[in-house]
Structures are given as structure tokens and as C-alpha cells.
Design a protein around this nucleic acid. Sequence first.
DNA 1: ATCTCTGATGTCAGTTACTGTCGTCAACGC
DNA 2: GCGTTGACGACAGTAACTGACATCAGAGAT
Lengths: 208, 208
Amino acid sequence: MGRWEPNGRERLAKAALELYGERGFEQTTVAEIAKRAGLTERTFFRHYADKREVLFAGSGELERLFADAVADVPPSATPLDALAAGLDAVCEMFEERREFAGKRHAVISATAELRERELIKLASLAAALADTLRRRGVPEPVASLTAETGVAVFKVAFERWITADEQRPLVRVARDSLEQLKAVAAGSAPAGVGGGAAPAPTEAQPSA
Amino acid sequence: MGRWEPNGRERLAKAALELYGERGFEQTTVAEIAKRAGLTERTFFRHYADKREVLFAGSGELERLFADAVADVPPSATPLDALAAGLDAVCEMFEERREFAGKRHAVISATAELRERELIKLASLAAALADTLRRRGVPEPVASLTAETGVAVFKVAFERWITADEQRPLVRVARDSLEQLKAVAAGSAPAGVGGGAAPAPTEAQPSA
DNA sequence: ATCTCTGATGTCAGTTACTGTCGTCAACGC
DNA sequence: GCGTTGACGACAGTAACTGACATCAGAGAT
């Protein structure tokens, strides 16, 4: 047995999520988080670069998962198909953690500072995806555009999935969003309500 | 004449951009910025909410310009065409300020904290665009997807334009990027090297 | 068994971003 | 003239973060 309780890092993360949820991010001091975790402020900053980062420790894992899945798709596939495979892999990871993801998402979307941090993590994800696509031989700017598109689709799908009234699994929502984006880009959705003139996109559910 | 030199706000912005460029963002204190502007630290925070915001004061104007242009497109146009009109309007505004935009961009991309702020401004822009599209009768999630796509295209185009070896006007680069995105989404760009199968996206003339 | 080295933590002092409060003084309207 | 307003300075305070150094259990070497 060590001199201190084990898993200090995890205790800090747990305490932070709790306190951010109870009092809000700005009303919580790092000293309070450390105290709840039975540690000191200085130790908090040894584990997490700043007060926000404690909520984003897992983002590196997500990035690797997504990029690896894209890299593993056969080279004959289009960039968009490779993207779809990555999307599938990432969505699967979230399915089991919906409750945790919900709490975390609520805290983040309540505070501008945390939204900033989330956005830069997503940007980092897009950069990693673009890099992976380039390694597959996809030229610029197609690689970057595809990567940004993939992140946008994930973002939109996640927001819908985390909503209370969305029952489908995340992977289903994501695939649907991707199909809709394809339809938009193909110009099949006129601005006017209804889109009657559109050549019936693949299977666009009138879910909205 | 007032008790103080006029245009304190602008002097602060100028001093900040200079100092961020000379020593870097993190190595510059707010006290130094204020001193160079002939004011005090307290006054800096009266004009700008925080040390980063001084570089993003004009973003509200950009947002209005973009959204208004999208709103003014005839309702018969597709969402993507409306987006293209907004893109044109925004690009025009940048053409005259390339030097300033370059300095600002160099400072921002050198510091993670500033990149975060830029990203949230772009997200705010996307939200405003999505709102405008919904007012045009575009349903969700198409409105959000289209808005995110528009911002992504602008981002990619701006990055290319600000590069020293890019000679074309921003509006040309942006239109080209949009065309390439359409091609990607249409599935015309195989993952295999070269994109030779694609219908020559590189010099796509602004047929839009 | 002792010794040393390592790693996770505590302690403390310091810098700086940011805020609240109050005072000052020119300009402006009456 | 006179009160009000608006922009700023002065000053004190909080809290995020950093650097330097101390402490002490455990692991491995001797």
C-alpha cells in the first residue's frame, strides 16, 4: 500500500465532474476539487494542465480510435466511405457510456470556456483525420474538407443522440446524418419548405 | 477635447497585436499592453472581456455580414447556393485587409489559447448561419449541416488564401473549395492517389 | 538488512488574469 | 451655475497557474 490512496487522478476527475455539475464550472475552485478528492491544488495541476482539461482527458483515445478505423479501410474506398467506417467505430465506443456522456455534455454546453476547449479537441480530431486521409493518398484540400465534414457530422449526430427523445443508437443517428449531408451537397434539398422538387434522397427519415 | 487621448479602445487593440507579434501572446502581460496604449490595465478590461478578446472584436460584424447575405438570397435557391452568396460577401470584406489578416492569423495560429477563441467564434458563426437557414425554411439537420459545411469551407479557403504563394483573391479560392467539397460529397474522388478520376477540381471556374 | 533511487505528493512563495469599489474630472444638458 | 454622465485611475482582492524544494513509501541493488 502506498503512502496515499491510489487513483488520485481518477478521483480528481470524478470530483471535478460532480462539482461542475453541482455548482457550475466557474463557481468551482480547483482547491475545492482537490479537497473532495483528498489531495491538494498543486497535485491537481500535476495531473491536468488546467481546470478545463480534467474533462477532456479521454479525447486522445477517441482521436486514435477514429483515425485508426479510417486507416484500416481498404484503399479502394472513397474518402467518404473511409470516414463512415471511422464514424462507426467511434459511435460504438459511446453507446455504453451514454449517462456519463450526458452529464459531461451538460456541463460543457453550459459554459463558454468549456465549449472552447471542446472545439479545439474536435479541431485536433479533424487534423488527425485529415492526416490519415492524406496518408491514404487523398490530396488536399479534399482531405481537410472531408475531415472537417466528418467531425461536423459527428457533432450534429452526437447532439441529437444525447437528447432525451432520441432513442436510436448513436451509430444509427450518425449514419443518417451523413446520408443527409450527402443529399445536401448533391443539391437535392431546395431552400423552400418541403423540398418537393428534390429527387428523393436515399432514405432521408422525416425525423425532424 | 477630452481629458484623455481619444480612441483608447483602438490604441489598446493596436498595442496588443503588436506585442503579441513581438513577444508572443503568453509572454505579453495586459499591463504592458495598457502601458503602450497609454492607459491602465483596468481600462483594458473595461474595453475587452479578456486578454484574447482584443483580437476578436470584429467577429460580430463578420457574422452579421455573412448571415445577412444568406438571408437575402431568393428562396428558390438551394441551401448551398445561399451559402455561396454569403461566402462571397464575407470574402469581399477580407480582400482589402490581407496584411492585417495575415498578422492576426500568424499570432492566433501560434497560440493554442487563441485558436480556442477563434474556434468558438466560428461556431457562433455556424449557429447564426444555421438559424438564418432555418428562417429560410430549411429543416434540421440540414440547416446545421449546411452551416457547418459553410464554415469549414471558409476556414479551408482562408488558410489557403493567407498563404504567401496563393495569388488568387479569396473569393476565388472559396468558390473553388466549395466546388471540391461538392465533388467529394458526390463521391467523385476515390481514395486512391491523385484524384485523377475527379473532374478536374483544381481549376474549377466559378460556375456557381 | 540497509541503501539508494524514484515517484507521487505536500508546502510555500510568487506571478498574472480578472473583478469590485470608489474617486476624479472634463463635457454636456438644463 | 449645477447636477449628471462617461471614461478613466487607484487600490484591494480572488483564484488560476508555476517553480522550487521537502517528504516519505516502495522497489530494486548490494
